[in-house]
Design a protein around this nucleic acid. Structure first.
Lengths: 195, 195
DNA sequence: GCCCACAGGCTAATAGCATTAGCCAGATTG
DNA sequence: CAATCTGGCTAATGCTATTAGCCTGTGGGC
């Protein structure tokens, strides 16, 4: 019986592939059985590399959050002001469209109490920081920055969540609606800057 | 062995209670076992009243959507313009805070293909229509109304989703941030009206 | 070059879940 | 009062995760 030569990373990678291939609900419906099948190993063998399903999910979430952060930072680079906000918003939506399950995984917030979630929590904070960077230059006062970031996140995530959940029934262009949402968010940021 | 005297409605009601008592993830973690325990009946007996777990979820979603629609309509009544939008937005958030699991259930969109989802789809359309009503009086052109509704929904739902998911780590006031989001949405609607 | 230890695979067993089949009694109706 | 049907039940199947315990291939020390 030859060894499969797995590792934690290999298992998490397989889980990423399994989830990603299963559409928007891929993260929720992720099973050890599917990952075992993909890695060519029996289910209990996975426990040699991963603490269990929850831990595997954590690993998937961590990779997904970091990928999303890279996307955000990449879009923001070399841009500023409304232009940067638009690019970042579109980038996040693109990521969600290309990898619905991973985007969903990235939204699973870390439990501040659980020490096992510390790394995930830090990664999430980095993503938020990357978004906050984009708001530089708008002149939003320090104490309103949190509100601005939350507002931008809410607008973008809300649209994506509804879009992926099939919440928008009408056939009208989703791209155009998204642009309206983003333009509105920009407007809101500018309002926070002047008020 | 005395009969429990169940009915579809009784089973759905029990499921609502079970889900509601289990916090934000109550809808996802709903199990027939828990509903059976609450109704004092063996698990397979539930199949006499409900098609299965999926069908039970559909029933819960339907009740939840209708409750949310009533809330929206109630808040909108007697108000108009920005005042109405603010009231509706706060009402939706209140509903989500009071009944996180039911709010989550109400977001489960119906499958347009599945005839069993027809009723749920119609109920969802009513909820959207109730929101659209609030936009009367802003003077948003006909062909932009869809965008306005989507934008408002995205803002409100996005905030709630992040709030309930623990996505807002910082201790700053969530109520204030929500007001910022709502004010921004109003701004966006007004922009659509004039542009 | 051999031996030993351990890492990484395995099978078996347990427990929780949904679902289906088939039985049986209580209530309803002719 | 009998017949039927409704709504309970138990038993069985199959999927899931998880734990325990075995066994073997691989690599390091002598």
């Amino acid at each position: 019986m030859p060894r499969a030569g797995l590792s934690r990373d290999a298992v998490v990678d397989a889980a990423l592939a399994v989830a990603d291939a299963a559409g928007p609900s891929g993260f929720d419906t992720l099973t050890l059985a599917a990952v075992a099948a993909r890695t060519g190993v029996a289910v209990p063998s996975l426990y040699k590399h991963v603490g269990g399903l929850d831990d595997l999910r954590r690993g998937v979430a961590l990779v997904s959050v970091r990928a999303l952060t890279r996307r955000i930072a990449g879009e923001a680079m070399g841009r500023s002001g409304p232009d940067a906000v638009r690019a970042v918003a579109r980038g996040i939506r693109s990521y969600a469209t290309e990898h619905p399950a991973l985007y969903a995984a990235a939204q699973h917030a870390a439990d501040p109490q659980d020490p096992a979630d510390a790394e995930l929590g830090a990664a999430g904070a980095e993503a938020v920081a990357a978004i906050a960077t984009v708001l530089r230059g708008f002149g939003v006062p320090e104490e309103r920055t949190v509100d601005a970031v939350r507002m931008l996140r809410a607008c973008v995530h809300g649209f994506i969540a509804l879009e992926q959940g099939g919440g928008f029934g009408l056939p009208d262009s989703l791209d155009e609606s998204f642009e309206v949402v983003v333009a509105t968010a920009v407007l809101g940021i500018e309002r926070l800057a002047t008020a």
